[in-house]
Design a protein around this nucleic acid. Structure first.
Lengths: 200, 200
DNA sequence: TCCATAATAGGAACACGTTTCACTTCTTCG
DNA sequence: CGAAGAAGTGAAACGTGTTCCTATTATGGA
């Protein structure tokens, strides 16, 4: 239970274990990408990753843990990619919107995957706290760094704003994955919130 | 499928049907209140409401529909109660915070119920759109009326702000029901967002 | 190298949401 | 009233997440 479920930290364990873990997460992403949350069936993941069902459960104690861990891995990739990108917006608001649009576009480019990962995130309880916090920190970090490029320390107000933006982002994403709003509406919703929050 | 799942509107149907519907929702609230989302088992609801499982599914096509409908009924009660209450806050921000605190306190007084209803809300897809929209409208209405007591028409900016507040509220509530944050943190989070959004 | 231990495979079994179906009871309307 | 159709009953059955168990295989230290 201890190390196997942590997220972005370096894993302990043998090479074989790291490879199994990777195969499992790859299979998860693949299935999610094809058919969303419902298509990520534990038996199917185990088959595709070529591990036994029991082994899958040893690595990830539930479907939710599995999906949130996969989400963490994807988010980490996104954040790394963003780090290398030069933002063009002239104001904090514009840069934040830029980052969120880039991220959203990435997600909306793979609706099934996004649906699966978001659903898992929303359903996760406190037993998934570690993984959830990782994702939350990626989010906050992305937003604050867009607000003040180059800076590495941020005051409470900035972090508070970033959190609120994260909340709106999650709610909007939820509306989108559940089919209650379109991609355009989602973008609009986030943009409105950011402009309200960063209107100095 | 047509009328049986609508929410706050007056129901068609015979007296017997209205009573069955009420018994079902009562049983749902009761079970949710005792043991949360997991305790609302369709067989248990059917038993306690004294209807057959098939009948339950005739009235509510899924557990999610059932719970979101129950949420709607509870929300309607809350909104009615709030209408009669005189708000004491001197500014829009203070009144909105007052309303949200009252509402949250009501919810947090029954954690299991809140967990069940929030989970259902977050998991609902577009087939539950009608019920979801009802709840969203109650929320927006409560916030805008707290911003401008007495007024009945609200401009786009106000509605946009109310929506953002609703998003934050939902995210914060999600954090709370999933055990990721405490009641105090949840209140804090909402208060920060409201002050940021209504700081004129 | 060999043994103790941990990890994995393979698969049965269970829980609960959901579907289905044959039968019975109620409602409505001519 | 009496028949046709709608609504309800009761129970079986299915799908998928989760648990459990035994036999087999890999690993790491003496």
């Amino acid at each position: 239970m201890s190390t196997a479920h942590s997220l972005a930290t370096e894993e302990l364990g043998s090479t074989a274990q790291r490879e199994r873990r990777k195969r499992i997460l790859d299979a998860t992403i693949d299935l999610a990408s094809q058919g969303g949350f419902d298509a990520v069936q534990m038996r199917a993941v185990a088959d595709q990753a070529e591990v036994a069902l029991g082994t899958l459960y040893r690595y990830f104690p539930s479907k939710i843990h599995l999906l949130v861990s996969a989400l963490g891995r994807e988010f980490e990739k996104t954040e790394t990619a963003l780090r290398e990108r030069q933002l063009t917006g002239q104001t904090p608001a514009e840069r934040v919107i830029e980052v969120l649009k880039l991220t959203s576009r990435g997600l909306q480019g793979d609706p099934h995957l996004t649906e699966a990962l978001t659903r898992a995130f929303m359903f996760a309880d406190s037993s998934v706290q570690t993984e959830i916090n990782q994702v939350g920190m990626f989010m906050t970090s992305m937003v604050t760094r867009a607000m003040h490029p180059g800076r590495t320390e941020f005051d409470d107000q900035d972090v508070a704003i970033a959190r609120v933006i994260g909340d709106v982002w999650l709610s909007a994403l939820m509306g989108w994955v559940t089919g209650r709003s379109t991609a355009a509406e989602t973008g609009q919703q986030i943009e409105v919130a950011v402009r309200l929050l960063l209107r100095d």
